[in-house]
Amino acid sequence: MTTATTSLDSARARTTAVLRRRGRRDLLKHLGLGVFVLLMLYPLIWMIVSSLKPDHLILTEPGLIPSEVTFDNFVAGWNALNRPFTVFFLNSLLVTVGSIIGNLFSCSLTAYALARLEFRMRGVYLAITLLSVMLPMHVLVIPQYIFFSQLDLVNTYYPLLIPKFLATDAFFIYLMVQFIRTIPRDLDRAAWIDGSGPFRTFWYVVLPLMRPALVTTTIFTFIWTWNDFFVPLIYLTSPKMFTVPVALNSMVDSETQGGVGMLFAMSLVSLLPVLIFFAIAQKQLIRGIATTGLK
């Protein structure tokens, strides 16, 4: 904006006209996006309002304006499971952070090999990777459980973490492969010619360039692990080991739907870390390649 200021009147007039036009366009954009955001967020707003209502009013009084406001749901929910909810938060945090490290480490190594290195049957490897995403987890979960239970690892976090360190989240491998493939090959070819081996090239050239993919992997691993229900449910039997979703599940009675208010309240509370994380992580995403020094 300041650079556009010149001493020439005509130029200034032109600039302000452009700015005004852009301002008007932005306003329209904001208006459109704003309406859209409201539409998208209505359910969430309703959930927030409901969490402030007494249990019996949630299903019977549908409107957004509560006739009675109470924080009981938060208080009751926090202590509903014999121990403060912080226990489940810490458990979830441990599993989530471990999964992120695991995925970043194992998937980036695998993806680089699959996307850039020449070796026999590379296509077959890629196909196997994709294939393992295609079979629904419900038929895999029992053989996997038998395996981990034979190792006596049930009711520990190992069954949730070991797979992440062994590149089994094919989604991310494939994501990274696609990202690496958008990087012009000349860049790492240059490094090769300079005498860097595959490991140096990976570490100094490719990894910095695939930052958006790494950030995306981090975001998704965080969110999916934080929200995962089925796998922790099966492996973690002792209540003090529960992650947040397993704890939330044991609040509601699927037969009678009692405890809805508590469920909403605690769902919202458990959404907070994810939201904060996303808000921070997406800034990394925006910075993207511009700051990673692509010359």
Partner: peptide
């Protein structure tokens, strides 16, 4: 050692 979940789970 309690092992608890809702009916479906």
């Amino acid at each position: 050692e309690p092992e608890f979940a809702d009916y479906t789970a």
